[in-house]
Simulated scan of single mutants.
Amino acid sequence: MIKQEMDWSKELHNTIIKSLVTTFGLDFLLFEDKKGGDVDTIHNVRQGIYATEEERKKFEQQAQYNSHEYHKHNNYIQTNKQAKIDHQSNKLIDAYTGQVFAPNDKINLDHAISAKKIHNDQGRVLAV
């Protein structure tokens, strides 16, 4: 059996230093703080703050925005068809105000949030 000696004075010194530093809010002396922390979050990436290069590259290397990919989607087409019918029959309701759109009101269902803005949203890319 090998007996291992421990340097108690060194351990005591480290413990005292850590205690003093954290007590007086000087943690930055011991830790390397990184803006945004060490986790990629939707909040951070929307501000251009990435914890990992992998996620930054994933966003930077995504395909260019192509409106046809969004505007030719069946859900988009069907929603607009139904909205046109509802608008012409005075049944289309503004989701924000709860009011019925007047027949001469211009409506842009696809522009509540543009497809391009959604496509270029760092948070969307992170969530994929």
Rank of each mutant, 00 (worst) to 15 (best):
M1L: 03
I2F: 05
K3P: 00
K3N: 07
M6I: 11
D7W: 12
W8S: 13
S9G: 01
H13A: 09
N14G: 00
I16W: 06
I16N: 02
K18M: 01
K18P: 00
K18D: 00
K18E: 04
S19P: 00
S19G: 11
T22S: 13
T23G: 04
T23Q: 08
L26S: 03
D27F: 12
D27R: 15
F28C: 03
L30F: 05
L30C: 02
L30I: 01
F31N: 13
D33S: 13
K35A: 09
D38G: 13
D38Y: 09
D38F: 09
V39G: 03
I42T: 07
Q47T: 00
Q47D: 07
G48C: 05
G48E: 04
Y50G: 07
T52F: 01
E55A: 14
E55L: 10
E55H: 07
R56I: 11
K57T: 05
E60F: 07
E60D: 12
A63S: 11
A63V: 03
S67P: 05
S67Y: 06
H68Y: 10
H71Q: 11
K72E: 15
H73R: 12
Y76G: 01
Y76H: 15
K81T: 07
A83L: 13
K84R: 09
I85K: 04
D86I: 00
D86N: 04
D86K: 01
H87Q: 13
Q88I: 00
I93Q: 13
D94W: 01
A95H: 12
A95V: 10
Y96C: 09
T97I: 12
G98V: 06
Q99T: 09
Q99G: 12
V100D: 04
V100E: 02
V100S: 10
F101R: 04
P103F: 01
N104F: 02
N104C: 08
K106T: 14
I107F: 09
N108R: 15
L109W: 02
L109P: 07
H111Y: 13
S114K: 15
S114N: 07
A115Y: 12
A115C: 09
K116L: 05
K117L: 12
H119T: 09
Q122E: 10
Q122H: 15
Q122N: 14
G123R: 08
G123P: 06
R124W: 08
R124I: 15
V125I: 14
V128E: 06
V128L: 07
